[in-house]
Design a protein around this nucleic acid. Structure first.
Lengths: 246, 246
DNA sequence: CAGTGGTCTAGACCACGGC
DNA sequence: CCGTGGTCTAGACCACTGG
């Protein structure tokens, strides 16, 4: 194993975090092939001069992230297909950081205008409501990943200029963090304009997501329509507490 | 604390799982008020006659589930607002009924076979595990809507013949109803075979969903890969209780 | 069978919170 | 200051995998 597993104990970030980071980097840099087995926990423990419990905690993290896969009695393996997880309830920047990709964005539109009839209907606004209109191309790892078009009633967001990277951070700042919402997800094909912005072919597959969010009292906060590149993005939904079903 | 923390060691489910379950029940039954503090880890450890590490692992679970909240130097608290985190999920039949469409299906495959390497890896099964393989075309309103391909370890489903319409009903019948899982959703294009089965054009957009589900103790129950017609299906995710994000 | 991950223990020291 | 959670250790036994 050519992992660099040196840890610096002057820096007082926990050992298991340092180890997890170094392993993650090693995996992303391809120092171990996908599907291969990691050294056993006992070996790693010896290699790094830490206890097995600490190694386990580091591995736990990577397993949670979907990078590793444990098989009882057999070993710990790099997940065969590298995945692009996204969390069901997070905004874009958080997703990107979580995956170790450098987030970025290019502004297309940043203005105040009147909600269209369609938008007003979907968000249950009265006709003619003023909204901030925020459209961006989202970048990850220096490649376009998605087009995002958000509509927010100006009442929710007095100062449109304050939005730097994160819409939710700005909303939070005004005490208007949404508390619930609905997302609709469907498969579709890229329009010529979208294809250009996303650097994909016209007619390539895209994932369209429409998100509506609300304050706890039901006041609409946001309507975001996005188109994600089908070849680079995967929507991950965490399923807890099953309901009645099929 | 009026928790019933007795554990039975004959039943050999891990101690920390038993403890987590008992605590969760106690909380749900309201034996501790929302917002109140739990006994300290050291006290719990003494109360239950287990080590602090084990208590921590049990608490870790409940923290993950959003039931508990830790504050360094202060204590561990029941999360103030009872939450229903994550995305609620339903199987196919429930979805269809919910939309007022007549559900139906055509069996493509219904057999027992060996898990492929890929399947075994994704479900964390050991190589060569026997699985029931269930593939169907799902119909709604007399038109094909999706292709569904489910894999279930035979241990979960002794009698493959019992599956009539609903996989979950059959699992439930054996006491193996999954309690949690993950879904991955991405946009893609229909292969020629899929196009034929779904009555759409080759290269038309489809929504691919991969669902993995597990028992409460983490035992894998099901791996289902589906392809939904992009022009007829939309995945709806309910967002409750926002997390930290972008 | 030997080797793997899964669980568990009984200690230890640290960093933080609140009195 | 004491009590809290956060981290870490060294060792143990079990259950499982695979040859």
């Amino acid at each position: 194993m050519k992992f660099n597993l040196q840890t610096r104990w002057n820096d007082h970030t926990p050992l298991y975090i340092q180890l997890a980071n170094r392993l993650r980097d090693g995996i992303h840099e391809g120092q171990i092939a996908y599907g291969d087995a990691l050294p056993s926990e006992r070996v790693l423990s010896e290699l790094t001069g830490t206890s097995r419990v600490t190694i386990r905690k580091a591995l736990d993290q990577l397993v949670d992230e979907g990078l590793l896969l444990r098989r009882h009695g057999s070993g710990t393996f790099i997940t065969p297909r590298p995945e692009q997880p996204g969390t069901s309830l997070s905004g874009f920047s958080a997703d990107a950081v979580h995956c170790g990709q450098a987030p970025g964005s290019i502004w297309l539109v940043k203005m105040v205008s009147v909600a269209t009839v369609d938008e007003a209907a979907v968000l249950a606004l009265s006709a003619g409501t003023l909204v901030a209109r925020l459209a961006r191309v989202r970048i990850a790892d220096e490649e376009p990943l998605a087009i995002e078009h958000a509509i927010v009633p100006v009442a929710m967001l007095p100062s449109i200029e304050l939005i730097s990277d994160s819409l939710y951070a700005a909303l939070d700042h005004h005490g208007n963090r949404p508390s619930n919402g609905v997302q609709k997800i469907r498969a579709s094909l890229a329009t010529p304009i979208e294809a250009g912005l996303l650097s994909i072919k016209e007619g390539a597959e895209v994932l369209r997501i429409e998100r509506r969010t609300f304050l706890a009292d039901g006041t609409p906060v946001e309507l975001t329509r996005s188109a994600y590149r089908g070849d680079r993005y995967e929507f991950v939904a965490d399923l807890r507490d099953w309901c009645e079903n099929s």
